[in-house]
Amino acid sequence: MGSEEIILGGIQLNKTYKTKERIVRPLQNIDFCLHEGEILGIVGESGSGKSTLLRVIACLEKADSGKLLLHGREYTGSSPSFAGRYMQMIFQDAYASFDPRMKMIDSLREAGRRNTRGAAGKNCDAAALREAGRRNTRGENSKDCDAAALRKPHRRGGTDDSRITEIVREVGLSEDLLWRRPRELSGGQCQRMSIARALCGGAEILLCDEITSALDVTTQAQVVQLLQRLRRKEKVSILFVSHDLALVGSLCDRIMVMKDGVCVEEGSSGKILGQPENEYTELLLKSLILL
C-alpha cells in the first residue's frame, strides 16, 4: 500500500533498566522501518516492550543505544518537542491524554499553535470566536451562530480555527464537541479528538498505543475505519501497537511480533497470519478467540 520511501526507522535500539528485583530489557536490538503511507502493526503481550518502543520513537524516553531516523536523517536524542513536529502519540486512555480542565478547542489550538502547514496571515478574529464559545456554554440554541463564528478566519500563525473545524469534521465529530471537556465526551469521541489533535499539530506519523483497547467493539471498528481513511486521504503513516493480533491483522500492511523486548518475527500481514514461522506467533494465533 505504502510507497517505497522510508519515513521513519530505527536501528539496533536497546533499552535496559533495573528494578529492585531484576533487570528489565524492554528493547533488545530492535530494527524497524515505516514506509510513507504504511500502517505497521506491532503485536505483543504486556511487557513485550511494544509501548516502550513507541515512547522511545517519540523521544519521551531515551534508548540506551541505537539510532532513530526520520526522513533519512538521524534524530536520536532529540526533544519530544522536536519529534512532535513530525509524529504524535495517540494514547490508550484518551481521557487522560487531554487536560481535564481544558475545553477541546483549547487543547487543539495548543497543538496547532506551531504547525506551519496550517498557517497563513495573522488577521485575528479571536474575539468573535471567544464570544461564540461563551454563548455555547450558556445555551443550546446558539449553535447556528457559533458555526458562523467558527467559519470566520481566526489565525494565530498556527492551524487556524477553520482548519481545526475541518479536521474535527474529518474525524467524524461535530464541532459542537469542541466546547466540551474530555469527560463530557464518550470514549470513542475522545479518542477521535486525540486523533484530530495529532492532525492539528501537523503530524505525518501517528504512533498509536493500544488506542482501541478501552473502547467497545463497534466504536473500535469506527476508529479503525477512521485510521484507514486518514491513511488514504491525508497520507499519514501509522505505527499501530496492540495486543490483539486479529485487529492488527485486519488493519495493518505489515506486522512485527514482539516478545520480551525482542522482535521475533516480522512480515506482511498475510504472511504472519497465513504462514507464521515463529512458534510464539503461532501460539498467539492459536490463542485468538475468533468469531
Partner: peptide
C-alpha cells in the same frame, strides 16, 4: 443468533469484530 441475527444492532456488533482475512 450468530448465524442469523434478527436485530440490526446484533448485525452491527457482529460486523465490528475484527476477523482474520
Amino acid at each position: 443468533v450468530l448465524a442469523r441475527p434478527r436485530e440490526e444492532y446484533t448485525r452491527r456488533l457482529l460486523a465490528a469484530v475484527p476477523r482474520l482475512s
